[in-house]
Design a protein around this nucleic acid. Structure first.
Lengths: 266, 266
DNA sequence: AAAGTTAGTTTATGCCGTAAGGAGTGGCAA
DNA sequence: TTGCCACTCCTTACGGCATAAACTAACTTT
């Protein structure tokens, strides 16, 4: 097994924080590419065709180079993805109006995050195991923390809250992101897919109603009606789930704030 | 592009619901394997080494066969994964005591789901774009719906709530699951990794405290202290985030229930 | 002009999913 | 009993992937 050592950490961090030595007066041919150019190409591919289509070959080709040419600028594919991640995070707003209270600010923050994830759905596949520790990741954290600090909750509570909020927005966005990819991936629209499936389901599980009474009841209670026909059914519903879930979450936070406030009274 | 037609849907569903024609009196050699044996082998590999290690070759080898032998039983790798998913879902409890109220029941349901995801972290990587429509997926839904129906909320609200709860548990579990994989994947413990990184961070961002005042403040406010030294720091914290977040979510649901109840009064 | 460093290529290794085709198995109809 | 044929399982092969190694060509410094 290959162990990543101190040197690798230094290289990674230098790339992320753009702290590399300037390329002036160095021997050898002039660089024909730059890390930023590579990142733009890679992000464009991932945005348009998803993470699965992001290969070193594809990025190289888009830049008129071979896959191997990229290794001059970036140590590996996984580092490339980390860099892409930190780069797109720069799109996010860095501060929110706090005049109307933290709840309003958190709501619009969540909306921005939601839109961001849908703009770059591949970000949802970047491992959250360990932070990337890039500058924009820190900015993103700082931004939401600045809002949440307004609640007056303790540091420990804030730490947990940040985790919960990110989890929630990510997970909600993931549902929509994946459902957008599905038709392209399977070459089948949601309608076609569902039609084929549900027909077979009746054959294969004729006792469905008895086996799943609650589900059957729910299905009977007026299915969701979309107002906007241009947006797919599933997506519309997911958006409402997001809004409703966020409201529930914020209600919970408000309850915690009130509890803390009451306890502070004489 | 290859389009999946009606025939594929029928084959998939038959496999999921075990509605295949019995193998008695059929010509040709007796099957040396079975779908269940294959699923057990595949699940064992995915549990132990993660989704990335799950290849048709690996599963075949574990069963003393070649990769291609599996295609007699299972049409493709993605169908295999769907089958694995529905199979492990069978481990989950199918009903919860409702005597102590829905809140208690939801809490233990969430705990079971959390443990389930950590037992089978690869499940978190199964696409949620479209439901698999296997029997156990329906059972799982039925189970949680039966609990939530106790709240007395409307069908629409319930639909959203189920989504939110699944999102939340999945996302929270994902953090821990990924952080468990990280040391194995990089050959570096969390401590080593963090030590190497933070040393470089000071070099590369000497103005950290000014750029990220809120983060710096949070860091100063007593870092989390683990009681149980055997469990990694990050994991302990994630578990608390899960519990705290769930409580917040349930508070929010309770608020919605109370609002609905008040509105129903004369 | 020689030496040394760098950018980018070609080539090769070992993975992956799976298509194609062939070998052997065994139940059934003739 | 023979021949057929559906069936299981194998070998081989293809085109993808990340990336290691060795090479060429460009450019700066000595």
């Amino acid at each position: 097994m290959v162990f990543a050592g101190q040197g690798d950490a230094r290289r990674s961090m230098a790339l992320l924080w753009r702290a590399g030595s300037p390329a002036q007066g160095r021997p050898g041919p002039k660089p024909g590419l730059s890390v930023d150019e590579i990142l733009d190409a890679a992000v464009a591919i991932a945005d348009a065709q998803g993470m699965a289509a992001l290969s070193m070959r594809a990025v190289g080709e888009r830049l008129g180079r071979t896959a191997m040419a990229l290794y001059t600028y970036v140590p590996s594919k996984s580092e490339l993805v980390d860099l892409m991640y930190d780069r797109v995070l720069a799109e996010l707003p860095v501060s929110y109006e706090l005049g109307a209270g933290w709840r309003v600010a958190v709501t619009s923050w969540a909306g921005e995050m939601w839109a961001f994830y849908l703009r770059h759905p591949w970000v949802l596949q970047v491992s959250q195991a360990r932070p990337v520790l890039g500058p924009n990741e820190y900015v993103t954290l700082e931004t939401v923390l600045r809002i949440l600090r307004e609640t007056g909750l303790t540091a420990g509570a804030l730490r947990r809250l940040v985790g919960v909020l990110f989890h929630f927005v990510r997970a909600a966005a993931q549902t929509v992101a994946e459902s957008r990819q599905a038709p392209a991936a399977t070459g089948m629209s949601d309608e076609e897919w569902w039609y084929a499936r549900s027909a077979v389901l009746e054959e294969v599980a004729p006792d469905f109603a008895e086996r799943f009474p609650t589900l059957t009841w729910l299905d009977g209670e007026g299915a969701y009606q979309s107002e906007d026909e241009s947006v797919p059914y599933l997506e519309q519903e997911a958006k409402e789930t997001f809004a409703a879930g966020l409201a529930v979450l914020l209600d919970g936070i408000e309850a915690a704030v009130n509890r803390a406030g009451l306890r502070a009274l004489p």
